[in-house]
Design a protein around this nucleic acid. Structure first.
Length: 648
RNA sequence: GCUCAUAUAGCUCAGUCGGUAGAGCACUUGCUUGGUAAGUAAGAGGUCACCGGUUCAAGUCCGGUUAUGAGCUCCA
């Protein structure tokens, strides 16, 4: 049979030759590095026979695929075997690879804590030291079930039973150990290829990922080809931890949380300054893009939420208020608004709208409350009270495409100014739990996809992830250390306007139902500020920095000049503070640097005599001297410039 | 909501075998007036998250509650 290699060359091998035979045929070095093969596009073990003419490429340990296979073998073979050695009654579930590593889920009789990880790692190293060969057998369904029944591996049996496969269940086994595991493979040919690894954490995870199922123990780990790569990864994790907005928020005195209001932010003066600056920035952009700002009530009678459909779907997650009125016939139940859209429709419904009024774009910095499950809260990123840069576009079906284009343009300019140069687009389609007929959903999905296709933006489809009222586009930005954040959203809604009786008079003089588009660019201010803090590692661009300038004196003789400079800057609305404390200049510089003040002005006798200022910028240890008149103007201008973020 | 863990000074943390709490930084005061990431000395600061139990005695052991953390589930 003929084997075609990736470079197009063809080798002739006996029928039934394996990937290893092929590697050996090409060269001994390759055979040594080979860990698996790709035959006609699918990965196979090195020991699998190839029966017909095929296109084959060899996966070596140093490739990305090789690393992935190594991680897979490390979890499904080594970690699982170590667990069975240490906890013989443990029951194995699944052990896949994930980004940068792997995990394994299993059930144990005794709880495993992170203190046990070193012990498990040791056992793994012992197993790896054996250098065992990894063998594979193909089994019928019956035999496979029998094999795992004798081991009391009920999760494996469940997996086999639910498989559509008739036979060829792959069971892997190492050397002469009696550990076996079911796996779709491929695996390393032997344990010798395992590189550097570390078990990182232990946590709970539901069997099959369903919250109604029992909780299994999950052990996470990371694995790399060598110690250097492992160290680099661990270093990356440490760097990410240093950027944690909860830690920086404390250090920079931005906000706090407390028990009496879980998931709700107490903004301190510094944090609230960032919030206000960001909001003013967005407000200006909204006006530039044809939106009108409105405001709607916080507390609204349940009747409106019933009409909108929210009461039905999300009542569990709404904060409810009851007022005890002694003589009222009926207790009135209100909800704190979890969304702004029903309120916006109420404003739309005031007065008769004509097609000439469309598209009508309402914007609101809408404060919403949602009773998020206790385990989901996370700093500013997931809270129970938040403010969206919300907006609703009321338009005709014909206007969807142009509105989509205008929105994406708007969003990308906002992201660029905030320092995020690129974003991905995701199209989410109808979910299981939804309102509206399939006919309407067909129309909505088609409209959105057509719009984005015609505009030529690349996008991915996320089946079933749409909102309950319509399909949506989500915008995912990438931060300075490569993490993804879903922020912007653009959601078509062919349902709510009809439910809440919104109409317009068309050219034909008849009444029509407008399309409603829910849209946000930042998402929530709370979360977006968290993202900004982490993206900039606290070193916010000047216009967003709570304290933009600190003027530090060297000796008390210059205090009058310090105050003079400060009042000049204040007059130009620069957020400036003076530091005339009786401390050494290095002490002051250190303190203001650690609290992330972007501009430190240092003033001593020399500056006062020459009417200059020495400036030290955050992240640099150079000082530059400027004449007073020039620099005050320049800093004032720079401090208001929300475009063209300087590179970090 | 689920699993596991954690909760001690403003912050970061120590506190052994159950015997009435300790460090560094920050804060206040004194000395120090100095040239770009920590000058120096002293002082003040705590109902050990909350409720209950065991015990002669609980920061420490046990139970519950609340909050937080990691992950899972969820996220209009």
């Amino acid at each position: 049979m003929n084997i075609t290699l990736p470079d197009g060359s063809i080798r002739e091998l006996a029928q039934g030759s394996t990937g290893l035979d092929l590697a050996n045929d090409i060269g001994p070095g390759l055979a040594k590095a080979a860990v698996a093969v790709v035959v006609n596009g699918s990965q196979m073990d090195l020991c699998d026979p190839i029966e017909t003419d095929s296109e084959v490429s060899i996966i070596t340990i140093n490739s990305n695929d090789g690393l992935e296979i190594m991680r897979h073998t490390l979890t499904a073979q080594v970690l699982a075997r170590a667990i069975k050695n240490l906890y013989p009654t443990a029951k194995l579930a699944i052990g896949p690879t994930i980004e940068d590593g792997f995990y394994y889920d299993f059930a144990t009789e005794t709880a495993i804590s992170s203190d046990d990880l070193p012990k498990i790692e040791n056992e793994m190293r012992n197993i790896i030291a054996s250098g065992d060969l990894i063998n594979k057998s193909l089994n019928t369904k019956k035999d496979a079930i029998k094999a795992f029944k004798s081991k009391k591996e009920e999760y494996k049996i469940a997996i086999i039973n639910e498989s559509e496969q008739a036979d060829d269940f792959q069971i892997y086994q190492q050397g002469d150990s009696d550990f076996i595991d079911l796996c779709r493979g491929p695996h390393l040919p032997s344990l010798e290829h395992i590189g550097a690894f570390k078990l990182t954490k232990v946590a709970g995870a539901y069997w099959r990922g369903k919250s109604e199922n029992e909780m299994l123990t999950r052990i996470y780990g990371t694995a790399w080809n060598n110690d250097k790569d492992l160290a680099a990864y661990l270093n990356r994790m440490e760097e990410a931890e240093k950027r944690d907005h909860r830690k920086l928020g404390k250090e920079m005195d931005l906000f706090h949380f407390q028990d009496e209001a879980p998931g709700m932010v107490f903004w301190h003066p510094n944090g609230w300054t960032i919030y206000r600056e960001l909001q003013n920035f967005v407000r200006k952009r909204l006006v530039d893009n044809g939106y009108v700002e409105i405001n709607t009530p916080q507390v609204i009678d349940r009747k409106l939420w019933e009409a909108s459909g929210h009461w039905d779907k999300y009542r569990e997650n709404m904060f409810i208020t009851e007022i005890d009125e002694e003589h009222a016939n009926e207790k009135r139940i209100n909800a704190l608004k979890p969304m702004n859209c029903p309120g916006h429709v109420q404003i739309y419904n005031q007065g008769i709208k004509s097609y000439r009024d469309l598209p009508l774009k309402f914007a609101e910095f809408g404060s919403c409350h949602r009773y998020e499950p206790s385990g989901t809260m996370h700093g500013l990123m997931r809270v129970r009270a938040f403010t969206q840069d919300d907006g609703h576009i009321f338009c005709t079906e014909d206007q969807i495409e142009s509105e989509t284009g205008l929105f994406i343009k708007f969003l990308s300019s906002v992201y660029a100014d905030l320092g995020f140069k690129s974003f991905d687009i995701k199209l989410s389609t109808r979910p299981q739990m939804r309102v509206g007929s399939d006919e309407i959903w067909d129309k909505a999905e088609l409209a959105l996809e057509t719009a984005i296709k015609n505009l030529g933006y690349p996008y991915k489809i996320d089946e079933g992830d749409g909102a309950f009222y319509g399909p949506k586009l989500d915008f995912v930005l990438t931060d300075a250390i490569g993490r993804d954040w879903q922020c912007g959203t653009f959601q078509l809604d062919f349902n709510l306007a009809e439910r809440l009786d919104a109409e317009y008079v068309g050219e034909d003089g008849k009444k029509h139902i407008p399309v409603m588009i829910h849209r946000a660019i930042l998402g929530s201010f709370e979360r977006f500020i968290g993202i900004l803090i982490e993206n900039y590692a606290g070193k916010l661009p000047l216009w967003l920095a709570p304290r933009q300038v600190v003027i530090a004196s060297i000796t008390s003789d210059v205090n009058s000049y310090v105050n003079e400079v400060a009042s000049l800057l204040k007059e130009l609305n620069v957020r400036v503070e003076t530091d005339t404390r009786n401390e050494k200049i290095s002490y002051k510089v250190r303190e203001h640097s650690t609290s992330k003040v972007p501009v430190i002005m240092v003033i001593g006798k020399k500056e006062m005599e020459e009417r200059t200022i020495s400036i030290r910028r955050l992240g640099s240890n150079e000082n530059t001297s400027y004449s007073l008149n020039d620099i005050v103007e320049q800093i004032a201008q720079e401090s208001k410039d929300s475009s063209n973020i300087q590179e970090l």
